[in-house]
Design a protein around this nucleic acid. Structure first.
Lengths: 235, 235
DNA sequence: CATAGCCACTTGTATATACAAGTGGCGCTG
DNA sequence: CAGCGCCACTTGTATATACAAGTGGCTATG
């Protein structure tokens, strides 16, 4: 048995929803029905459903049954998404311009942020992400070489830093600070801004189970990029 | 039995953490130990622990045991917090300046946003929130009068719009767009900005179970306010 | 015809049990 | 003393069962 039974049942229900066989507010088979269908006990079927309720795909109602929830668009505010995927999902062209890749000595503040010793050699990548050949994000990223020693050998035209890091050291947590700034002339030049305009700047620290993986400063020209999201309020 | 047994166990463990008897990375009693202590089956104790893991209070490790997780500060990025609470929690003075309260005819776009008929009369409040007498947020808010007819009768020096709306129509969902803008001269004046500086602008739509409650535009001078948050990445 | 009550079906809680699988310590052996 | 293997303990998966409790429809009764 490769996959646990309750995982198989989860997968099946997810597929039914993805394929459109189950739509919003449709009733899903009862726990008893599923346990017959998958030849398992009711508790196993129940577990599958419980976990899908936790993710928000299903909602239960005692006495009535279990139903497909109102499907909500994902909250890209919270989610850390890969910018190339996001651009491609909008049906646009993604490309990247690598400005430089280097090793640098950690200054005091970067060392603290990355949780390494001062003057350690750390990796730094600077690149610009383009949507239909228009720069939409300047990404300056410092990476902890202890956790991802092979970072600089990545081909960034094939894998974004986020993609590469996700493979090398799966993300467990992230920390964000969002600010509005006026770009410096260097940033304006790198983003090919015709005139100065306010930019959204996100400082993001990402963690894996082994510690701080990287620290990135993501700068978006306001006229070309927004951040949005929808989420439900708990409690 | 007022509370289900697994809820009692959850409560007990939460208390132990709150009281400091269990600290970060401490080991919590094993499922078997809990089931003896509470005279229940292991599956019941297990359920309590499972749900506390889901909330992030505990982490499990097969073969080793269950531990109190690294306690994280709340993510104020996702949470919709009351600005007056936030300012007071920082130990600063909160005050508010009401610029105006009025009824307006819904223009096309506001009508769509609030999901009401065009030219309906809707409520509009404009106020500035101050931290130690410095303006930190300009809030322009449109409210659906069908859902909160008594909105304009609120004393905004006692309750922020968010507080009042939360009582009148509990939030179920919210939608956000974040942008960086240069303030108009009116906004700059209302925020008492000495010179023009980039501002973070959040457009927020809030929903109750009965529909769109309000639409707010929150403008923060970048030099006086940031948005931050930390969260765990699922999957 | 209206309704009160019963019944079938659903989810919710709880138990007892079994075996799989991961971890870490302890002791035995080379 | 180093390392291997066993064992105790832990969490992970799964089953079979029981009763509680909420929902909705159907039927019998007034």
């Amino acid at each position: 048995m490769i996959l646990a039974k309750f995982e198989q049942i989860k997968q099946y229900i997810c597929q039914q929803v993805e394929l459109g066989h189950l739509k919003e507010h449709d009733r899903v088979p009862s726990e008893n029905a599923l346990s017959e269908q998958f030849v398992c006990s009711r508790m196993t079927a129940r577990r599958a459903i419980t976990e899908l309720c936790d993710t928000g795909l299903l909602v239960r109602s005692q006495g009535r049954g279990t139903f497909v929830a109102t499907l909500k668009s994902q909250t890209s505010l919270m989610e850390i998404r890969n910018i190339s995927d996001e651009i491609r999902e909008r049906g646009h062209d993604y490309s990247v311009e690598v400005i430089n890749l280097k090793e640098v000595n950690a200054t005091q503040d970067v060392a603290i942020t990355l949780d390494v010793e001062k003057d350690t050699t750390i990796y730094c990548s600077t690149l610009v992400h383009l949507e239909d050949n228009v720069p939409v994000q300047l990404e300056v990223r410092y990476v902890n070489p202890r956790l991802v020693p092979e970072y600089l050998s990545n081909d960034f035209t094939l894998h974004t830093p986020h993609e590469f890091l996700s493979m090398a050291a799966p993300l467990t947590e992230a920390e964000h600070i969002i600010e509005a700034i006026m770009p410096t002339s260097l940033i304006a030049k790198q983003l090919k801004l015709a005139q100065f305009e306010p930019c959204l700047q996100i400082k993001r620290r990402t963690f894996s189970s082994k510690g701080v993986v990287s620290f990135a400063t993501l700068t978006h020209p306001s006229s070309r990029f927004r951040i949005g999201g929808r989420f439900s309020v708990n409690g």
